[in-house]
Structures are given as structure tokens and as C-alpha cells.
């Protein structure tokens, strides 16, 4: 039940992009075509889940026991950068077809603040789900939370790419073309997602 609430909360209620503004740059950058948006979503789900798992373990078994929590930011960003490179290399060897689909998005992900944001959130913040007690997440919950957050990000990205493809065909006033109208559309999408708030 707890896991179910985490998933609903992370995907709909506190959508990482539409409610917390994490990962906006790549969001605006790759959302003009549905196919690239889908590729990016896959890569993000993969990296966020994996990065959170690794940084959670590093924090718990390395940084905290040795009193090095002041190196959190530095350690996490290096881990993420290394991880992204490794994923790229491994993917190239194991599954060239998947690499073809995700490859070009992987280097971009290091500077997607959703990755570092989620990794830092799960080790520093208390969470409440469905009226339950406020608590720090354990390993299982962290990974599920990270996965669901990434799915939420991917979903917002794909939804938005769909909207933008239609936007292209419309007669938009000249000054609004491109990013401004995209931002306003995004605002309306965020408004729709506000309907989910209070759900869990």
C-alpha cells in the first residue's frame, strides 16, 4: 500500500517537472518532437533509478559512517557523471539498439537537475505519503520513489511533446512562437496536474 501511495504521489501529485520544476532545461529542449521525447524519457527513468540506488548506498555506508556528509553534493554529482558514462559504455557493448535509441540523450542527463535533485531529496528530506507518519525513506522506498518520479517526468515530457507537435501547426502570434508559447502551454498543463493535489 505504502509503495502504491509513493508511486501515485510521485507521478501525479508532486510531479517532478510540473510541480517541482526539476529538469526544466532538457524538458524545453527535447520536447518538440514526440520521438525524441520518448527516447529521453527512457534514458531518464534508467539513470534516475540507478543513480538514486547508488547514491543512497554511498551516503548510508560511506558518507554517514565517516562523518563526511559535507561532501554530499560533490560526491553525488561525481557519482552521477561517472554512472552516466558507464551506462553509455555498457549500453554500447550490450545492446547497440538501445544505445541507438538512448545514446545521444545520455550525456545530457548529467546536467539534468532532476537526477541530482531526487538523489539529494531522498537522503535529506522527510516524506509523508497518504497521511502516514513523516519519515526518511529506506532503500526500497527510495528506489521506488526515484523510479516513479522518473516515470512522472517521462510522462510529462511525452504529454508535452504531443502538445507541442500540435502547437507547431497553429497560427501563433510572432513574438510568442517557440519557447514563450511552450512555457504558457506548460503552465496550463501544470494547472491540469494541480487537480491531482490532495489525492494522497
Amino acid at each position: 500500500m505504502e509503495y502504491f501511495l509513493i508511486i501515485i504521489s510521485a507521478i501525479f501529485v508532486n510531479n517532478v517537472m510540473l510541480a517541482q520544476f526539476l529538469g526544466t532545461c532538457p524538458f524545453l529542449g527535447v520536447s518538440n518532437k514526440l520521438s525524441t521525447a520518448t527516447g529521453m524519457s527512457g534514458a531518464v527513468v534508467f539513470v534516475i533509478t540507478f543513480a538514486t540506488l547508488v547514491t543512497y548506498l554511498i551516503n548510508k555506508y560511506l558518507l554517514v559512517p565517516f562523518g563526511l556528509t559535507f561532501l554530499q553534493t560533490i560526491a553525488f554529482i561525481l557519482v552521477i557523471a561517472t554512472l552516466v558514462q558507464m551506462v553509455e559504455i555498457v549500453l554500447k557493448k550490450i545492446s547497440p539498439s538501445l544505445y541507438q535509441a538512448l545514446g545521444i540523450f545520455l550525456p545530457l542527463i548529467t546536467t539534468n537537475c532532476a537526477v541530482l535533485g531526487v538523489a539529494l531529496s531522498v537522503v535529506t528530506k522527510e516524506f509523508t505519503f497518504g497521511g502516514g507518519a513523516a519519515h526518511m525513506l529506506n532503500l526500497g522506498e527510495s528506489v521506488v520513489y526515484a523510479f516513479a518520479t522518473a516515470v512522472g517526468y517521462g510522462m510529462a515530457l511525452i504529454l508535452f511533446a504531443g502538445l507541442r507537435e500540435h502547437l507547431e501547426l497553429n497560427d501563433v502570434p510572432k513574438q510568442f512562437r517557440g519557447i514563450p508559447i511552450a512555457l504558457i502551454t506548460c503552465g496550463i498543463l501544470a494547472m491540469a496536474f494541480m487537480g491531482f493535489s490532495g489525492l494522497v
Binding site: L18, A19, L183, I184, I188, A190
Partner: peptide, 8 residues
Amino acid sequence: IMAPGAFI
């Protein structure tokens, strides 16, 4: 001051 307003 909520999320949608920021975008708009």
C-alpha cells in the same frame, strides 16, 4: 505563486 503561474 503556484507552479502554473511560474510558467505563464
